[in-house]
Structures are given as C-alpha cells and as structure tokens.
Design a protein around this nucleic acid. Structure first.
Lengths: 244, 244
DNA sequence: CAGAATTTTGACCAGTTGGAAAAATGTTAG
DNA sequence: CTAACATTTTTCCAACTGGTCAAAATTCTG
C-alpha cells in the first residue's frame, strides 16, 4: 500500500484557503469543519460530468481519455469541470466504485436456498440485461481489466474474491446434492461473465457478424435463448421433439 | 494442453515495405522499379518495435499508448523509431493486420468433413492455447473492439463475417444431421470466443479470484476441462446419484 | 436588495505528445 | 578505400496534456 496521492478532504485544517469545492463534495469520513451540504448545482453537474466521463473512459481507457474531451461531452469548460473534480483520477475512481457495486449485485442475488437452474438461469438473464442496458459500464470495467486493473486490484482481490468464494461454495453444495453437474464452480462463474459481457464489450463485432438482419435489438433475446440451452444441456443433441 | 510454440514477434511480422527509407529511394530521380530489398537491420528493428508496440498498445489502447513509451520498451530513441514507422498509426495497422490472420486461423481450421464434437473441442483448445500463449494479441484485439473497432471495422464486416457465415453453415449442416444440438450457430461461435478470450483479457481478475493456489499455470488446464464439459453436456447432472 | 457564497470563465503554465529536419555516424558495394 | 547509401542522434516545434489562478458572473440567503 504505497503512500499514493493526497486523498481529498482528509485533513480538516487546510493551511491554504482552497476555493475548491472538493472539501464538501467528497465524502469525508468525519469532517471536522462544517461539511455544508451539496447544492443542487453540484449534484446536477457532477452527474453530468460522470455521465460524460463514462462515455469517454469506457471507450478510450484511463490514459486514452482526456479531461478536455470529457468536458466537451459534458458541455462545460475544462476549468469548470475541474472545479467539481479536481483530478482526472477522482472522476475515474468515482465511476469505478459506483460500478463495482452494481456489477456484483446479480451474483449477490444468487440464492443458496433456491434451485440451481432457476438461480443460474436468472443470473445469466440479469447479466445479459446489464450488458444490454449498461454497455458503457461493462466496457469501463473491461478497459480497467485490460490495463491490469491498477486502480481496482484491491477490490478485486478482496471483495470480488470473497463473493465468488462464497458463491462457489453454494454451487458446490448444489453439486453435492446432485442438482448440478459436478464441475469447477469458479470457471463456471467465469463462463457466465464472459458469455454475457461479450455482448457489451464486443458489441461492434457481434453486430457486424450478425449483419443488419439479425444484428438488431433481437440479438439479446437470441443470446439469452442460446445461452440457456448451452448452460442447461450443452451442445449434445437430445431426441426429436424439442421442448419449447 | 499441448504447447504450441511460435515466437510472438513473428505474429506481427508481415512483408511490407513502405517506410521512409524506401520512400526516399523510390522518390530518387532514377526510380525505376527498384524498391531495394530490406536490410537485415530493418527487419530486426521493425520486429523489435512491433514487439514493443504490442506490449504498449495491448495495455493502453491506441490513444493511451505513446510513441515515447514504445520507443523506450524497444530500447531506442523516438526519432529512431519514427525512422522505421513514420506514423503511430502505421505501427498499429501493421500489428492489427498481422493479428487478424493469426486470430482467425483456428476457426478456419474447423473442418466440415469432421465430426462436430472433435472439431469444436479442438477449436476451443486452440483458442484457449492462444489466450494462454498470446495474451497480448488477445488484449490488443479486445482494446480495438472496446473502442468500436475504428481501424478494423471493414475487415470485421467483410473477412470475419464471411468466415463466420461459412462456418455457421457448417454447424447448421451438423445440426441437420442430428449430430449437434439445434441452436444458434452464430451465438455458439460467440460463446467460444468469449469463454476462451476471457482468460487472456481478464487475466488479472481470473488470477485474483482463483487466488495464489489455483491461479497458477494450471488454470488453463482447468478451464479446458470445464469448457469441454460445458459445451458437451451443459450443467445438467448425469450419471449416478442423480436423486434430488 | 445587499452581501456572501458559489459557479464560471479566460489567461496561463510546465510537461508531454506526435512528428520534422538535418547533421552525424555507421555500413557496404564497387 | 571511398562514395553512396543506411542508420542514429540532436535539436526543434506546434499542438495538446493535466492542472492552476484570479477575477468575473451568477446564485443564494438574510
């Protein structure tokens, strides 16, 4: 844990009078002075900025994204943007921490008391919906991974790992009960992540390969149907008279 | 998993002569049709540069990568590098076109005259080996996809689409013969891409989640075993002890 | 409405970026 | 050996980068 940058608003008594807003904007653990609630404008502008930043970071990664570009998409000047988020890293950090919560929710929802197939099927559906409805978030995450996850490695190693360990046990439990094929629970989870996120991260490719005919909105329905069949029975043909 | 060994530098090596030096020669007064073959140094340095560029581009994407950084990794000065590749784009283009060839080879190798399961199984293995042995190439590709594939969209829409269309027909043929579960051949191919490339593109995550114990080299073996089971039978339990 | 606080702007800065030019240094064929 | 070519280094540049700052404009609040 290197003594990295200065955390915003960590010291109550700033020696120099900062006209920056970060002292009240950032979530301080226990600000000594008066935190002074956020104004309406602060909330709105921060949302606009984060929205724009999501666009840019998810396409170009952290280094490839520029503050100017984010500011332009957000419809404001660079110094104005920097008034709300004094550092580029800060914007990215906010996006990432918000993302991780949303991202893990579907796996968290997998219920040990349920039956494996409804649970897994529902998990796949949820992940697929997220790929459809939040493709930028998926790409933001993918971009971070491709770079070696420098800014979220800790959360991956702790929070994510713990969650997956827990759910792997659930899966193993189902396998012990003979309700689920005995296989590697970790790689099972990986395969669900991979197959669903693919439709967000490689969207261009999916569209291009499916062509104008089948590359429309229906592709997510098709994907859901296919994946259900794959995870349920694999590719082995089963008698005639297929069930609906 | 049988190891396949090819020097990674060779992946990006394709015969092309169009750089500054040659341009000068071609622009000379007596420029007939004498492109003047590449020298030993040219070949070597270009390989070194492409190798370094693969490192940098695959981590940071096109915009996030800098010529300075590539030059540093390649162990030469920036102007020296620019002597061999006069533009940043040129390096990237060379990497991408070389990559696409290698990338599609495994799918090309899927033989219509074979039986579906050995063919598919072998395709999965090959793709998994590529994820293991050429993770940077995989990430380079993923990075380009995340950005909307601006520099290779044509190749995707033409070459890749044609290849997939062709192989989709092969899969449909197998399904008609009852040798393969009737399902969507396009999404079938997507799922193989997704599950295998995941181990290169999300390597950090895979390692972190598996932990120090199972995150070692063995993870590719485990993945191969798991994926085989998944694509063959899905997750439905078979055999003894099926009681609920 | 006045005064205080907040928000926005424009000018600016030092470091980095992709790249050009040319001089200096190798290498090699005749 | 030497001229012709190939390679490398040095110097330079304009545009862009993340970020600062003070002043101006605007929005609260009593």
């Amino acid at each position: 844990m290197p003594p990295i940058k200065v955390k915003s608003a960590e010291v109550a008594t700033s020696p120099k009078r900062q006209h920056k807003a970060d002292a009240r904007v950032a979530a301080a653990p226990h600000a000594a002075a008066k935190p002074r609630a956020q104004t309406r404008i602060q909330r709105e502008k921060q949302d606009v900025i984060l929205e724009a930043a999501l666009d840019v970071f998810s396409m170009h990664g952290f280094r490839g994204a520029t503050i100017d570009q984010i500011a332009e998409v957000a419809g404001m000047s660079k110094p104005n943007l920097l008034y709300y988020f004094p550092r580029k890293e800060e914007i990215h950090r906010r996006l990432m921490s918000a993302l991780l919560e949303t991202w893990l929710a579907p796996l968290r929802a997998m219920n040990a008391d349920g039956d494996p197939f409804p649970e897994i099927r529902s998990y796949i559906r949820r992940k697929l919906e997220m790929a459809r409805d939040y493709p930028r978030e998926s790409r933001l995450f993918a971009n971070e991974m491709l770079q070696g996850a420098p800014r979220i490695i800790e959360m991956i190693e702790v929070d994510l790992k713990n969650l997956v360990d827990e759910k792997a046990k659930v899966l193993l439990g189902w396998m012990d009960q003979g309700k689920l094929a005995r296989t590697d629970p970790y790689h099972l989870i990986f395969s669900i992540w991979a197959t669903t996120q693919h439709y967000a991260d490689f969207d261009v490719q999916v569209r291009a390969v499916l062509g104008p005919g089948r590359g429309g909105e229906g592709r997510f329905e098709d994907a859901a149907r296919y994946l259900e069949g794959l995870f349920l029975h694999g590719l082995t043909p089963r008698g005639i008279g297929k069930g609906a």
